[in-house]
Design a protein around this nucleic acid. Structure first.
Lengths: 352, 352
DNA sequence: CTGTTAGCGCATTCAG
DNA sequence: CTGAATGCGCTAACAG
């Protein structure tokens, strides 16, 4: 049997012997309808499995109730930033509680090069956009966003006219306090590419905290790794960590701004017979998923994705609704979560 | 200045001094318009930055040109299945080349419990759906999909009336041939929860290949791990691997159906002074991202996400367009990709 | 061959 | 509570 076309309010109106206006009122709670007819109409709508057509609603409405979540992605490193997963699921949650349609819109470097306008800005079915980080990878997109006026947008973890940024100051302090508390004095820092705001911000937070706690970090114990795709990066991290750990007075703890660097350090340590966390402590930075995808699970600093999502949406909402001027950049503190990669400094290495 | 509303074909028609029909024809290549007026109209549309309103197009069209990619997700383990990333980016690519709107629709266990109909089935803005695996986590969704008639759907890596499944037979053979080729004879198997089709299918592929190559796998060298969330799982893997590796005649290679198990084995080995890959070889199964997010990068079996996406879309297209009966379940071979976790069996352990 | 007119589709809402 | 108008892109039917 051919599937009958979806019912419209007209079908319902006929069946109920009322006008379409009555149906609309009854279902949306607008206008005036008697409780009597309202419940009859509801009943019938239920039976016929009525669902309003989004297209028809969008035709009428001046505002769409939709928000694009724009995710710049270079196909090659699609899976590298573990942040997209948690961000998306948090936006899904938010969409459910706030009743808005989030439209996930991946824009690839290749596409942006020949047409920088994101797909979701094309059909007039969103009111604005939230843009996730990793924009340095897709510069054309940024230029386009700045140049257009129609859609308000706010950035997550990226400087922009309106943005919300992770703040790692507290978490960095906490991490260093934790390490000092269990006896570590000789600590190494390792950072990912500083043109990514998360790494740059982690660095400044760590350096600030180190100063506050009078921690001396040797220059040889500081590393800055440029961007390398995938495996190449890791090989470099391992080489560095191996080198550092060969020194007789090597550090007993490593603070890293990237999970892969952390993993590389652990690997390098283990290969020289140094156990983690018994001999060497390591912390990471990134998502829960990445922290728990290997062993030992990493004590690490994590962005507060929930808050990032909520705040960015709040800002966007203000921008969409109001002439109201909102605070243009906000910060949300990251948090340190303790797992299994930090322990007391070994007896033999205690100094003072 | 207030932003002027987006232009419509009416605005263009006025500006060009023609009818709206002419504009529509010119822009869509339907009907007949002289090259003359066509280029004039195109010019004007360009200048005015005209974009057709999706809502208006959808109103008229009987088919929407949209496809939902339904991703069942339990918030808690959102980041666990690394497959979502590669799948999504492949669908984005596909959407660009095929000119279809893919609508990513995450459905959480919680939501499905009180309303099993996916959001994307509500407003009549897609023609059908592709459903990714991990459905066992959200059983209500499956029941709903089976019960409804309106939208055709095809499953990826999950048994269903229409589905496309990864086939690891060839890759498993290749993996075992690789290991045997470099001298391994004493091999262990470790599998994740068998109620996930990927693990179950990996198991049968490995067992089949083992028989073909006359490989004897001791019963103590086989492990089946039930589903445990996150860290708990890993601790168990490590305990098992540690135990196995303590045996004097321990295996020299581990074939695992999950990257986390692989990582746990490597960790356990390293802690007992066994190097990977020099002393112990390990393979994994999963995504490129997970294989390269730690060290050593894992030689592993990977689903062919590109083909999975393409085939599932082809099938769905046939279902949407045709009364045509399509082949109802198709298989796409996974592939073995060599990285750094497999090497020659150590001299001392060579047998025969 | 080139073009126009007159609806269609459907949920919402203003004026009765 | 009802009738009719609105929003906009598409297309069958018709005219020059």
């Amino acid at each position: 049997m051919p599937i009958s076309p979806p019912p419209t309010i007209i079908d319902i109106a006929k069946r109920a012997g009322v006008s379409t206006r009555a149906v609309s009122s009854a279902l949306n709670g607008t206008g005036r309808v008697s409780e009597q007819t309202r419940s009859v109409i509801r009943q019938i709508a239920e039976e016929m499995r009525y669902q309003p057509r989004l297209a028809a609603q969008l035709m009428r409405a001046r505002t769409t109730g939709g928000v694009a979540l724009i995710i710049p992605t270079d196909q090659a490193e699609a899976s590298e930033s573990g942040a997209h997963g948690p961000l998306m699921t948090n936006f899904v949650d938010l969409g459910e509680t706030e009743g808005i349609r989030f439209h996930f819109d991946f824009v690839s470097k290749a596409r942006a090069a020949h047409d920088p306008a994101p797909q979701s800005f094309k059909g007039a079915y969103v009111d604005g956009a939230i843009v996730t980080d990793s924009m340095p990878q897709v510069p054309a997109l940024r230029d386009y966003l700045m140049s257009q006026q129609r859609y308000p947008w706010v950035c997550i973890n990226e400087e922009a006219p309106y943005c919300v940024l992770s703040d790692f100051d507290d978490a960095a302090r906490e991490a260093i306090r934790l390490l000092i508390g269990v006896g570590h004095r000789n600590i190494a820092f390792a950072f990912g590419p500083l043109d990514f705001i998360s790494h740059a911000s982690a660095r400044s937070s760590f350096e600030k905290a180190a100063r506050e706690y009078d921690l001396r970090v040797e220059n040889e114990s500081r590393a800055y790794f440029p961007y390398k795709p995938r495996r190449e990066g890791i090989a470099e991290y391992v080489a560095w960590a191996t080198e550092v750990l060969r020194r007789p007075d090597h550090p007993t703890a490593f603070l890293c701004s990237d999970m892969r660097i952390s993993r590389a350090v652990i690997y390098a340590a283990l290969r020289q017979g140094l156990l983690v966390p018994e001999d060497i402590s390591v912390t990471g930075m990134g998502t829960t998923g990445d922290a728990e995808k290997g062993y030992p699970c990493l004590t690490s600093i994590e962005p507060d994705f929930r808050a990032l999502a909520e705040l960015s949406y709040q800002m966007l909402k203000e921008l969409i609704e109001g002439e109201q001027c909102v605070q243009s950049t906000r910060r949300v503190p990251g948090k340190l979560v303790s797992r299994d990669s930090v322990a007391n400094v070994p007896r033999g290495m205690l100094c003072g």
